[in-house]
Design a protein around this nucleic acid. Structure first.
Lengths: 206, 206
DNA sequence: AAAAATCAATTAAACGTTTGTTTAATTCAA
DNA sequence: TTGAATTAAACAAACGTTTAATTGATTTTT
């Protein structure tokens, strides 16, 4: 059943996010998912193919949204940037475990084919924002900024909060508890910060 | 000889950065460093202790600098922020392979003791900047910003450029070549971006 | 409706490799 | 002659994967 494949993938996401791909054994995974060791290879063929199946299934988490916003003619450029930031923060926070796995993978030089797959999924988002910013600069709406690095700042800020867990626990004074990644207030706090910072940088003051 | 220990550590940094800790075998490392497999355990005791020795040796890469800048009474708060950003960018770019390893480690939930060690090394930097920003806000020099997230933006921007290699190759239009991490011009481009963005956000406009 | 056949799902056990580590012998300079 | 450095070989454990047998529900045949 597809049901069971999903169940294995869900458990794999948990383990890969916490222990890494090479750091997770199929026996650990089988134990956590409460299935026989052989089932993983029966359903997916191999550990690597399980990984690919996971990416294929969860890839949609960042699709579509941005294009819709960019095309919306009722929004100003700045309103579009705001909506994109909000969407980004919400989606990455919601899918943070998968996001963590993706970034572990992007850091390494193993499985380069898979890296290309991931980049092909994620990059269009960055490209769309870049186009938006560059055209607004040409129009004279935005200041002449380094658009590639603006994107690095937006995504980098989110990533730092999401990925460097222990570090940010201290930074946000949550040493004994946890950062409330699920709390809408915290999510809003992050997206408001990014929006305000980017506003201050993009908007001409004269 | 300490000479040979360093030689092993240097090769370990290369491999760990590219293939991860679990993804690197002692045999691969021994082959690359051109030493016998047994030498790693002879010198370091175990693979994990090799990792710890590596961290201990390279930890100093971020020490000191910030404290000196913060204490310098000839600098304004904004000048201090600028100097700190420049120092951060330069140091992390210079030690980017080690930095990559550190962040692989921070993402995972294995070897928690080591994580604490790393956080204890890196966090004082973040804390110092936070104190600086918060006191400048109290003085009225800076706008009332979310200082924890400002730090996330500074470090996050650098990390995104340094860690998500394939992604940033595309973002910076270097698909066929490489991002010139060693090029002073590129390093300056990054630190100028961060400084300008943070300026726009921190400085009161009235 | 009962019996037989079919086939995907599931299992425990074993497969051959690779892993980190250790041993015991050897080299080699002090 | 001593003791650290170095080696090839072996170690047990863990790894991803495969096998071959069994289950159990569904379909086909009687």
């Amino acid at each position: 059943m597809t049901d069971k494949k999903d169940h294995i993938i869900d458990n794999a996401i948990e383990l890969f996010a916490e222990r890494g791909f090479e750091g997770t054994s199929i026996r650990e995974l089988a134990a956590k998912a409460e299935v026989n060791v052989a089932m993983v290879n029966y359903y997916f063929g191999s550990k690597e193919k399980l990984f690919e199946a996971m990416v294929a299934q969860k890839a949609a988490y960042s699709k579509g949204m941005i294009d819709e916003i960019v095309k919306d003619k009722s929004l100003s450029d700045l309103e579009k940037i705001d909506k994109i930031i909000e969407g980004f923060v919400t989606r990455l926070f919601t899918n943070r475990k998968f996001h963590r796995i993706i970034h572990q993978e992007l850091m390494l030089s193993k499985r380069e084919n898979l890296q290309d797959t991931i980049v092909n999924i994620l990059y269009p988002n960055s490209a769309a924002i870049k186009t938006l910013i560059d055209s607004a600069i040409k129009k004279g709406t935005f200041k002449k900024v380094d658009s590639a690095l603006v994107i690095a700042s937006v995504i980098g800020t989110i990533n730092h909060v999401l990925l460097s867990k222990k570090m940010c626990n201290k930074l946000f004074g949550k040493e004994d508890s946890h950062i409330p990644y699920e709390d809408p207030k915290f999510i809003k706090r992050v997206s408001e910060h990014i929006k305000e910072m980017i506003h201050a940088y993009l908007i001409k003051t004269n």
